[in-house]
Design a protein around this nucleic acid. Structure first.
Lengths: 240, 240
DNA sequence: ACGGCAATTGAACAAGTTGACAAGAAATTT
DNA sequence: AAATTTCTTGTCAACTTGTTCAATTGCCGT
């Protein structure tokens, strides 16, 4: 921090930028390389050497800056999470002011889905979206605690908003509704080409607009009209 | 196969079973150990040594029986996939005979969700469900081609059934609807305790009945009532 | 200008990884 | 009973893994 200020004041801005001695910048380079590699191969599928090679730095620098592989992994979330969380909070604020119930629910759904879907389709950040998707379906994530630490708070806010918009729903319904939203979102973010393949190219998660339109419509309907028939015991059909 | 027949005819059944000389049995033991380990740590997070140790066999046996780590991985799917695919096909057959649209959609949803959710809550097979969840969110799965080989065919059947039940929907809508279903299912199957944590214990994926009830209701509503507003261009609200 | 310090480097570390091999044991066939 | 196939085992060498170390570089305030 102190050094950055100095650099700005100095006349050698260009020289410093070109030269190798710049902590913040190499940190970022490692971070980006790690992001891409982790997204492609998962936490265990990547060696620190691969990351170092991609970032064009010696391996030891990773341990110096981040204190190990896991520290580097966490640093990625520390860098990215605030951005998308802020967007969600902003979206929820909009929804809060909406009087019409149907529109309100739709805005909540959008507040959850759109920031992530947008990130997914953005070139630079697309790899982070895939890391996120991996993390939620990795039992080790529990051990790392990244999801819990960064995303549980916003989850509670979303569910509060849902409960306000749909006061007649039970807590269980609200929870499952949120899980459903998240599931759809994560699965789409994590897509490895299967959606496009199955739809013969008609559906493309990269197409942020179309994807959001369809998914928001589906989840909005699910939240508005989806209620378990007989809550205590619903044994209509049961397949073997 | 030939040996198994012989064993049944032989008088030394007990001796053979107790002793170490039983190919099919050790194969299964390795398979089960691998299933558990892969589920917990992912394909890259596990070494064949760990699996061998868990199965209590020497490492070389794995290479002998399955020709390597990836062969073992695929063998798990070859063992498990048919079971759940058969269940889905059966469920779709039931749905096909249902005249009422709303019930028909519900039965299709159940045909997709219930077999997996059941497997999830079953003690013995729960690990396979988590492997499956991992595989769909792993870009390398594309490379392995397991999902494509085993599950694409049934996916097409489900979408055909959906199209029949909802004739006015576009192909895009059918595809996205299927993706949504799958996303919810996979996310629930892959759950690492977050659902229970967020809901303060109220929602438990292990509770097959409650989980299925809620998710089926949600997805049924999504399919029946979820249609994108203006298909060509829907720019009602757009958040920054 | 010079010592101090953060940043960087290449080398080395111990621990663990993989696939393969030859050789042994048990069951099956000849 | 001998030969053969099928299965099992312990060990091997070559290679990665994440991390640490001592040494070096270049920027900074005094």
């Amino acid at each position: 921090m102190a050094r950055t200020k100095k650099i700005e004041q100095s006349q050698k801005v260009i020289a410093v930028e070109a030269s190798q001695r710049n902590s913040a910048q190499t940190r970022l380079r490692i971070l980006h390389a790690a992001e891409a590699e982790f997204a492609d191969h998962g936490f265990d599928g990547v060696s620190v050497r691969q990351i170092a090679q991609r970032a064009d730095v010696p391996v030891a620098l990773i341990n110096y800056h981040f204190g190990g592989k896991e520290g580097l992994y966490r640093a990625i979330f520390e860098m990215r999470a605030p951005m998308i969380i802020d967007q969600r909070v902003a979206g929820l604020r909009f929804a809060q002011m909406e009087p019409d119930q149907e529109r309100k629910v739709e805005m909540i759904v959008k507040a959850v889905l759109v920031p992530n879907l947008h990130m997914r389709s953005t070139e630079k950040n697309s790899s982070y979206a895939r890391i996120l998707a991996r993390e939620v379906s990795d039992p080790k994530s529990h051990q790392r605690g990244v999801i819990q630490e960064f995303f549980d708070p916003i989850a509670y806010k979303v569910m509060d908003a849902l409960q306000t918009a749909l006061p007649d729903r039970t807590t269980e319904e609200i929870n499952w509704a949120y899980q459903a939203m998240l599931g759809v979102m994560v699965y789409t973010m994590a897509d490895t080409g299967r959606i496009s393949r199955l739809s013969d190219g008609r559906c493309d998660p990269e197409d942020e607009m179309a994807t959001a339109t369809h998914l928001v419509a589906l989840m909005k309907a699910a939240l508005l009209h989806g209620r378990p028939a007989g809550l205590p015991a619903d044994d209509s059909e049961q397949r073997p």
